[in-house]
């Protein structure tokens, strides 16, 4: 009984390789969808730009009639969409795994609201601009997250208490945002939409840089804890028994996820339900075949690209991406609530 049958051991190894292969195929498929979405964003707009022209613009050539629209309007939009999509997807799924509840995503428990409120306040009231806005937003997002964590602390933190306190916090902050926006001297509906639902309209290339940096730094940090996070899916006790430092992992994950989401929020607003939707969809696609962190990030990017496309071209009138993800997310959300409640289960 000591070494295990070699045949069984080989079967175990084969099963593991099969799962790893399936996981790689899923990720490759998602990457392809993201690339297709980017290509679509670059080619389509008020006018159609042929792929050849797009390629020439991308390689730096001057193409009359296309250089400006593709290079200055559509490229930043596509790049920003992918980056914020990945940030929201990764940050959201990290929260969902950690709290073992798909409904416990940062947009529902008030973290996104906090970041958004700070950005609104900084822009509307303090008239700030440039790199200070993401900084304020990150500080507020972290502050709100830590405050929620501290308030939920009572002989340790339980997921249920954390979520409920987050919901209360979100209600308060949302009322604050509505109030500040109503007091804005020049009420610009487009600008307000950004802070209420999120939008990639008017994206500029320099907005993408902070999002890219935060994605690399904090996303990397999150991925380095991927294995501990996976163990946490079995509950804190089981994870601790496996040698996971539960407290440390929690704090790392919260800080990394909040920073990523706050930076993304500061540039495009809290895109509704994005953080919440990406994880469950990715988990559906990946199944039991492996970690859902990277697939969730890619799913987030897909959702932004597709949602933005729908909002711009497929609906009567032009809607910001947040309205589309919010409306599309609602039925899925209801389905998910029903399923979670039925099974009482985790992500």
């Amino acid at each position: 009984m000591s070494a295990g049958e070699p045949a069984l051991s080989a079967a175990v190894a084969a099963g593991r390789r099969r799962r790893a292969g399936a996981w790689r195929r899923v990720v490759a498929g998602l990457v392809l969808i993201v690339l297709a979405g980017v290509a679509l964003t670059l080619m389509l707009g008020q006018s159609f730009t042929p792929p050849g022209d797009v390629l020439r613009v991308l390689t730096g050539q001057e193409v009359p009639g296309a250089s400006f629209t593709v290079g200055h309007l559509r490229l930043p939009r596509a790049v920003l969409s992918v980056l914020v999509g990945m940030s929201f997807g990764l940050g959201g799924v990290a929260f969902q795994i950690m709290l073992r509840n798909p409904l416990a995503s940062p947009d529902i428990i008030g973290v996104s609201s906090g970041a958004s409120a700070a950005a609104v306040f900084a822009i509307v009231v303090l008239q700030m601009d440039g790199p200070m806005v993401p900084a304020v937003s990150v500080a507020a997002g972290l502050g709100v997250a830590l405050l929620i964590y501290a308030l939920a602390w009572k002989d340790g933190v339980t997921g249920a208490r954390l979520i409920l306190i987050g919901i209360g916090m979100a209600a308060m902050i949302d009322s604050f945002i509505a109030y500040v926006l109503s007091r804005a001297p020049s009420w610009d509906l487009q600008e307000a939409m950004r802070w209420l639902t999120g939008s990639v309209n008017g994206a500029r290339m320099e907005q993408a840089l902070p999002v890219l940096v935060s994605l690399l730094v904090f996303g990397g940090l999150l991925l380095s804890r991927a294995r501990d996070l996976e163990a946490l899916r079995m509950g804190e006790e089981a994870a601790a028994a496996l040698g996971v430092k539960v407290g440390l992992t929690r704090v790392t994950v919260i800080v990394a996820a909040v920073c990523m989401i706050a930076v993304a929020t500061a540039s495009v607003g809290p895109i509704a339900f994005l953080a919440f939707l990406s994880g469950p969809i990715a988990s559906r696609i990946v199944g039991p075949n492996g970690s859902i962190l990277i697939p969730a990030a890619l799913t987030g990017a897909c959702l932004v690209l597709v949602g933005d496309y729908i909002g711009q071209f497929l609906l009567p009138g032009r809607y910001p991406v947040g309205v589309v993800t919010g409306a599309l997310g609602a039925p899925y959300l209801i389905y998910l609530i029903i399923r979670v409640n039925r099974g009482g289960g985790a992500l």
Binding site: T197, G329, A330
Partner: peptide
């Protein structure tokens, strides 16, 4: 959240 999104839409 979902209803607010619809309202905005």
């Amino acid at each position: 959240i979902a209803l607010s999104c619809f309202t905005i839409a």
